[in-house]
Amino acid sequence: MTVSLFITCLADMFYPEVGESMVRLLHRYGCEVDFPEGQTCCGQPAFNSGYQDEAREVARRLIRAFEHSDYVVSPSGSCNGMIHHYYPHLFRNEPEWAAKAEAFIAKTYEFSQFMVNVLGVTDLDAEFPAKATYHPSCHGSRLLGIKDEPAALLKGVRGLELVELPHKEDCCGFGGTFAVKMADMSEAMICDKANNVVSTGADVLVGMDMGCLMNIEGRLNKEGRPIRVMHLVQLLEEGVNRRERNRV
């Protein structure tokens, strides 16, 4: 099948290696991956700041970019949450674009959802000997309902000890524009999140959204905590490569 990569702004600007890992993993399972160059932001920052007209124009551009794609896959629950949850609202008074938005939504997936629910893959034959804890991002879990898919993929990783994160459902405090507008509250939230991560004794923190990971990693680094922060895609690809090396 042909899959189009929706890279998202944060992955494009700060974490391109996440997109690269995702492409290599999809290739392993027979997917041809393309990259529509017309893609841009999903419109979430403008939408969250109250600029709905501007968000609508950005959304139109994104829909056009992927109009001919069979599947659209992204390493972000946040951007996918924006598409699935708010695009119908943006185009509620425009029947033609509402239909295009629904068609876009129907073929757009967050990475773990696509792997588990579309490809039917839970065990990637990966090996990653470490103690890890998992942070479920707000938009992925609350807007998209992602709960079992990341756990299924992590469970299949040999040597990985997964420890429950206390108060895992609590926001890390990033929230895009929220961290700028409500800086004091955001800082209090990330301090709590970092303390909970440290309390697990984990070597690795795993997540699915670059905004959350960037925020948590920044706090852990500021506190001098030597905990590795990884996107789920990175851990899986590194685990697959380790397993292959150990076979040689």
Rank of each mutant, 00 (worst) to 15 (best):
K131E: 13
G175A: 12
K131I: 10
G173E: 12
T177I: 12
E161N: 14
E164R: 01
C171Q: 01
V198Q: 13
P136D: 15
L143K: 08
L153M: 08
C171G: 07
D170S: 01
L144C: 09
G159P: 12
D170Y: 10
R142S: 11
D184K: 05
L154G: 03
K181W: 02
H135E: 05
C191W: 00
A132M: 02
I146K: 02
G140I: 15
P136L: 10
A179Y: 06
R142T: 13
F178V: 06
E161S: 12
N195S: 15
K181Q: 10
G159S: 10
A179D: 11
D192V: 14
L153T: 03
K181L: 14
A151F: 07
T133C: 11
L160P: 04
L143E: 14
V197N: 10
S186R: 06
Y134L: 12
E164Q: 14
T200A: 08
K155Q: 08
V180H: 10
D192S: 13
T133G: 07
A179G: 09
V180A: 15
K131N: 03
L154W: 03
M185N: 07
L165V: 05
R158F: 00
E149S: 06
G173D: 08
N195L: 13
L160T: 11
L143A: 13
T133I: 11
L154H: 01
A188N: 10
S141M: 15
G176D: 05
M189F: 12
A179C: 15
K181G: 04
G140P: 05
G176N: 07
A152D: 06
A194C: 12
R158L: 02
N195K: 08
G156F: 00
M185A: 12
L160M: 11
P150G: 02
C191N: 07
A152F: 04
Y134G: 10
H167E: 12
D184T: 11
V163F: 06
D148C: 00
L154Q: 03
G156H: 01
E169A: 13
M182D: 05
F178W: 00
A183E: 13
P136K: 09
E169W: 08
S137E: 14
I190D: 03
L153A: 02
A188E: 15
A152G: 02
S141K: 15
S141D: 03
A194P: 11
F178E: 00
H135N: 13
N196K: 11
S137F: 09
A194W: 07
M189C: 12
E187T: 14
C138Q: 05
A188H: 14
G176S: 09
K168F: 07
F178Y: 11
C191T: 05
D184N: 08
E161W: 14
C138M: 09
M185P: 00
Y134W: 03
A132D: 02
C172P: 06
E187P: 00
L154F: 04
K168N: 11
D192T: 15
A152L: 09
C171T: 00
